[in-house]
């Protein structure tokens, strides 16, 4: 399995579906879900996690501070 060095967590209950994170991602990691959250918005979700380069564009851009990014410690077997 391919290593995924970055982990993205989106608080789907906070997201208002403004899509700014989607628009600034250079690697098309994110898109908006078809489902809606309790606030009534199509929330952002991670669709291509392995493409993430940890640039933090999405987390910086998010007006609702709903994105958390973590760099994983990768163990090579």
């Amino acid at each position: 399995m391919k290593a995924k060095p970055y982990s993205l967590r989106i608080d789907r209950n906070r997201c208002k579906g403004c899509e700014l994170c989607v628009s600034v991602c250079p690697r098309q990691v994110l898109d908006l879900s078809e489902e809606i959250n309790p606030l009534g918005y199509h929330f952002a979700r991670v669709t291509n996690p392995s493409h993430c380069i940890g640039c933090m564009n999405c987390s910086d851009m998010c007006p609702d501070a709903a994105i958390e990014i973590q760099k994983r410690l990768i163990r090579h077997a």
Binding site: S7, G17, C18, L20, L39, Y41, D60, D64, A65, Q70
Partner: peptide, 21 residues
């Protein structure tokens, strides 16, 4: 892992009334 970004502590953990975007 190393946290690159997370919600700041000085921000209360609740949804804002602001419009999307």
């Amino acid at each position: 892992g190393r946290i690159l970004y997370r919600r700041p502590l000085s921000l209360v953990d609740r949804a804002t009334h602001f419009c999307p975007g």
